[in-house]
Amino acid sequence: MKLKKTLTILFLVVLSTSITAQVKKLDKIITKDYQIIECTVTKMSDKTVDYSLPNETMTIEIDVSKIARIDFANGRSQTFAAAKNTLGAGSSSTIVSSETQDATFKINTIAVLPVPFVNSENLTNSEEMAKFAQNDIYNKLQDKSSNILPLTVQDLRITNSLLKKAGIDYKNIDETPIEELHKILGVDNIIASKVSYTVTEKQTSAAYTTQNAKVNNNKIKGNEATIANTNTQLIFDYHVYFDMYKNNSKIYTQSRKPMLKIKDSWMDTVTYLLKRSPIYVKK
């Protein structure tokens, strides 16, 4: 009986050790091109970081210049600053060109532009909706900040203030070259989107008959009345255009129509496109 109990305890200890080994926490290397590598960091130097993947013994080396941050399994994080651009013969920046980089240029930062919200029938542009849509995209990125690492989102007040100083607003944002917007906003990533729409009315009519009965001198008399009811429904037909730029190059472009034709259906489409963009990492 004692032997059986001892074997049971030994089995539970071995099982617990095995489970602990399986759920061992890993380090996370977050690269500047939006990849997250789950691994075990084995060695670090000023120029490189060595790591091994789960269940592998082979060591892989990665250049420090490619790393934005490392989140270690023990909870400590280390951020790697962008390499400075030293001007000289044959020198060039691997992040942005020397023309666009200055002291205020923010690496791994994404700016959300105002969203032209255009009625495609009369070509009117709504300032209120342009700012509302810009806020919607900004809030979606903020809510999912861990999914867009190593990117951070530039505050909308800064973005809109810089655009205003440059004489750019929701009306002429489409006419400004993306290279100029990178310089004005001082970021290396930009989201530029647009919503075109039409609104139509759909009327449905229904009629039904009512009958009132009255007993008088043992005779039943009835009056019939027909009531007509008309309902008006607004149909919103949206088309969302979504572009993403990194260092003056377009890295993602999509357009999509919402399945539903209701007032706020464009918001679901924006969410859909964001989650499928190259900056979004599922967890």
Rank of each mutant, 00 (worst) to 15 (best):
F80A: 06
T40A: 09
N55W: 05
N55T: 05
M58C: 04
K47E: 09
S52K: 09
V49K: 05
T86P: 05
M44P: 01
T57Y: 11
D46Y: 10
D46R: 12
L87D: 08
Y51K: 01
T40V: 11
S52F: 04
C39V: 05
G75M: 05
S65R: 15
N55A: 08
A83F: 08
M58D: 10
V64E: 08
F80R: 02
I62V: 11
M58R: 12
I70L: 04
K43E: 07
I62C: 03
Y51G: 01
A82Y: 11
A73F: 01
I62L: 13
S65H: 13
L87K: 12
L87S: 12
N74D: 15
S65M: 15
E61N: 13
Y51Q: 00
I67T: 11
K84H: 08
T48H: 11
D63L: 12
Y51D: 02
C39Q: 01
T86W: 06
V41E: 01
N85M: 09
R69T: 08
T42H: 02
F80T: 03
V41Y: 00
G88S: 07
T42S: 07
S77C: 11
N55H: 06
A73Q: 05
T86L: 12
L53Y: 10
I60D: 05
K66Y: 09
A81S: 14
F72S: 01
M58A: 14
M58W: 02
T86R: 11
